[in-house]
Amino acid sequence: MSIEIKGMDEVLAKLDQQLGTRKVNAYSKEALTIMGRYLAVQIKNAVASYRDTGVTVQEIVVSTPRKKDGTLTVKIGWDGMGSRQRWRLVHLNEFGYTRSGRTYRPRGIGKIQKAYDSNKVQTKELGQNQLRKLVN
Rank of each mutant, 00 (worst) to 15 (best):
K23Y: 01
V55S: 11
K67Y: 11
Q113G: 06
R51V: 00
R86H: 03
E10Q: 13
E30D: 02
M35L: 14
G80D: 00
G7T: 06
A46N: 04
N136M: 07
V47P: 04
S2H: 02
Y97S: 15
R84N: 00
E59A: 01
R132M: 05
N25W: 07
D9C: 06
V41R: 07
V47R: 11
K29M: 10
E4T: 06
Y104S: 07
D52R: 02
G70N: 04
T21P: 08
Q42I: 10
R99V: 11
Y104A: 04
R99G: 04
L72V: 04
R37T: 06
V135M: 09
M81D: 03
V90Y: 11
Y116E: 04
G110I: 11
S100T: 13
I3T: 14
H91K: 04
Y27S: 02
G70P: 08
K6M: 15
N93V: 06
Q113P: 13
H91F: 05
K75V: 03
P106A: 09
K114I: 10
S49A: 06
N119L: 12
R37D: 01
K124E: 03
V24H: 11
K111Y: 10
R99P: 06
E125W: 10
F95K: 15
N119Y: 12
E4A: 01
F95W: 10
E125Q: 06
L19A: 02
V61T: 13
K29V: 02
L39S: 03
P65Y: 01
Y27L: 01
G80C: 02
S28C: 06
G20F: 09
P65N: 00
I109K: 15
Q128P: 12
K75T: 08
G70V: 15
G82W: 00
V62A: 06
R105S: 07
N136K: 02
M81N: 14
T73D: 13
G127M: 13
Y50P: 09
R105H: 12
G96L: 09
A13Y: 15
N129E: 13
T53E: 05
K111N: 03
D79Q: 01
T123G: 14
D117H: 10
M1Q: 08
V11P: 04
N45E: 10
G96P: 11
A13L: 09
E94G: 11
L126E: 01
A46D: 03
E59N: 00
S49I: 07
W78L: 08
P106W: 14
Y97E: 02
Y97I: 03
V135K: 13
D52H: 05
S49C: 05
M35K: 12
D117F: 10
E59V: 01
A115W: 15
K120D: 05
Y27D: 12
N45D: 14
L39W: 09
T21Y: 10
A40T: 01
T71I: 05
V41A: 08
T71P: 07
G7M: 08
